[in-house]
Design a binder for these strands. Sequence first.
DNA 1: CTGAAAGCGCTTACAG
DNA 2: CTGAAAGCGCTTACAG
Lengths: 354, 354
Amino acid sequence: MKAAPGPKRVIRSTAEFASYVGLARTTVSRVLNGHPGLKTQTVQRVQQAIEETGFTPNAYALHLKGKRTATIGICMENLLTAPAVLKLAELQRRLRERSHASLIEVLPPGGSREVIRHFLSMRVDAVVFIGHFVEEEIARRIDELMTHATPHLVIDQRGVPHADTVALDRASGMRELMAYLLGLGHRSFGLLAITGAARSVQDRLAGIEAGLAAHGLGFAECTRSLDHLHARQNDFEYGRALALSFVAEKNIPTAFVALNDEVAIGAMHGFQSAGLRVPQDVSVAGFNNQDICLMPTPLLTSIDQQIELTVNTSVDQVLSQIGRPPRPHPHVEMIAPKLVVRDSTGPAPKAKSA
Amino acid sequence: MKAAPGPKRVIRSTAEFASYVGLARTTVSRVLNGHPGLKTQTVQRVQQAIEETGFTPNAYALHLKGKRTATIGICMENLLTAPAVLKLAELQRRLRERSHASLIEVLPPGGSREVIRHFLSMRVDAVVFIGHFVEEEIARRIDELMTHATPHLVIDQRGVPHADTVALDRASGMRELMAYLLGLGHRSFGLLAITGAARSVQDRLAGIEAGLAAHGLGFAECTRSLDHLHARQNDFEYGRALALSFVAEKNIPTAFVALNDEVAIGAMHGFQSAGLRVPQDVSVAGFNNQDICLMPTPLLTSIDQQIELTVNTSVDQVLSQIGRPPRPHPHVEMIAPKLVVRDSTGPAPKAKSA
DNA sequence: CTGAAAGCGCTTACAG
DNA sequence: CTGAAAGCGCTTACAG
């Protein structure tokens, strides 16, 4: 093993670097910024010196002249769900393609205030929020950003006041799923973990109701939920427990619609361990279309979030707002999810009385 | 819904802010930096004005004076594995606790060069790598950092030349697992996906061999691998396929050791679908101790990466190197993993001939 | 085509 | 206890 390289001549400024190559700082700056009309020889000399010394201009001085930082702040509500992480990775990738750096912050327990202050002190060109935040809090942060004429975008969370938003149209996703299941002859539906006051949950319930209404069916008559019987913990275990509760009831629904893929897979395990076959006896559908849909037997039918489309749309949106006066009204764009049919859903079993 | 707040008086510099509060820039700066010996009234006046205007000092000017940026660059090899993401989140949290910001970059397809240049231009105080990189490439990046007198740390990847490293001692983890399984009476072991030239794989094989040797047993006689029969795709499916291949052989091993939790869970499904009971007929152990260990029945025995300890150690390491002359020799610290016994491992079945 | 000078928004001795 | 002046590392008119 050769010895570690000692720090050779470390060059820390254009001034030092200019004297190293024997040119004026101005000339060096022009080469660095790719200005036209320089002698080819000059350009080459500078480029070679950069290779030799590894000189990197100080970004802090660079942006001090009022130049845009070309940096986007990304505030993640959490990093614990696979879809959120995928969005983050894709977002950074897309921003890089369009010559923007990203400044990523995971929401600290104390809340979003310090994150936004950091973004502002770093003079980011815009801020993107990903996840589901406390509405009152994120609304306040967005007002702060608007005060500072900094564009923003909320991904995922519909309904934040004043907020430019790109969000999944969960209602339409559920409507599509219901149309599919109704077409397979299902008339009774078990709801798994689709409960609570959160907007994303209410949207799903509205979609389910609309899907039923399109067939002249009522929500109350056709759906059943047993969520009140359980305290929610790990999603997978929760799905299994819910399934077992349904099995213990009489007149078990023929189709089950879950909050997410984890709950759905847990439920499938629960049904199977009780001797029910999926999809011959009960159909089960998830939500998010994560990789884990390919883990269980049978493979899980799910609803895809269209992450690429969401992120693409978001990048277009947010970059287009930079340097523009704020919109008079927030811009809200809904992304249509996509039903991915696999093996966990099938025709409704014939009624026993038939 | 009330109207969106118009951008009120936006203050962009200490100069503007100073005139707003009617003080000299110097005084404002002193309050901002918490210097002692100021009139209480002055401090309060400034703080109130900050609340009113939301003024945030420009970080780019702030650090131009040669002050440390108090920012650590974090280069992630990928964001596709749960342990990597957990390390990232924990690392940012710990750094924040110690008053450091983080600049996160996911490795682009083009490689690490532009990432490091970005870090250098942002004058980060140190760089942390998380994941498994192409050794030659990361080694070159580290040499670059050393040239610039910027401390670095590699998390996870043992053996990078010149690199300060904090890595999991996979060999000792496997040795511990083997001691446990040997204690349960197992004498024949199936290896699942523990194959290839990667250092992390070789470390595991060395640990398995050492564990066997401690009982006077030979590696070749006691272990079997069928990885050559399959092309690796999705880890879960791969585990299932491997299990089915083992079932098709005669003299199936009594204990199975997997590369990771996904492979182990897939294998358990494979064994169970072939009518074998876990752990009565075969024991199965995973690696990483992810949340998904709690998903299958029975719960999966696994080896915990000790992420908190790893990150804590790393933060101590890297922060202690800032502002110091580089070490003459790289500092390598190994983290001891921890065996977490659950329900998927049990006593070896009695031999049929007994 | 290249260089000397001013200025971005801060902090920090140095005076008062 | 507070203020005027210099300087951090760049870029950009403005001259030559």
